[in-house]
Amino acid sequence: MLKMTDVKKVFRTDLVETHALKDFNLQVGEGDFVAVTGPSGSGKTTFLNIAGLLETFDGGTYELDGQDVSNLNDKHRSQLRNEKIGFIFQGFNLIPDLNLFDNVDVPLRYRGFNSAERKKRIENSLEMVGLAQRMKHLPSQLSGGQQQRVAIARALAGEPRFLLADEPTGNLDTKMANSVMELLKTINDAGTTIIMVTHDADLAKQARRNIYVRDGQVSEL
């Protein structure tokens, strides 16, 4: 499903080179739920960005869903993100000027679905996270947990093969964090592959598989 071989990522400034990922190797199978932990600065987020095609890398190969995505141009990567990957961010990243319906609508628009199709998908996914009644509300009118559920609905609406979650519960209290975690497990049970970056060891334990990143390399636990 996801296969990274010797992936390297170097950040250069005038003075220093930082090797964020060094010969990073990882394989994730279909339907897996992988939690990625590690100290800050270990390369977790860089890994997530590369896995999510948000960033390019400097060496090695990356196959996603059987396709080599190492040398794709920006436009292709955008399309792949749109079709195959759903994102959940620590800060939810909802667009404050848009109501829930329009927020979930964003990736579907880029996909080019017609309006009937979009409407169906938006309603279904908001239904799934239990917020169908609040479609016309603005993000600012919701609690943090509700906002993250909207973000999950947005990630799922396009029916991606992958869900990439970056500290999905980082801004939430324990109760809300648990409910979001339950939601993710449900989604994983339905067949979606999930990779979740977190610094919370308890949360990580709830995943099927745990990997630990240190100094830009994987050490599986």
Binding site: K75, S78, N82, N93, I95, P96, P107
Partner: peptide
């Protein structure tokens, strides 16, 4: 900025 980054992450191309 953040919103634009998010849109890009969600699949918007530069052209979009």
């Amino acid at each position: 900025k953040k919103q634009i980054g998010t849109r890009r992450a969600l699949g918007a191309t530069q052209g979009t």
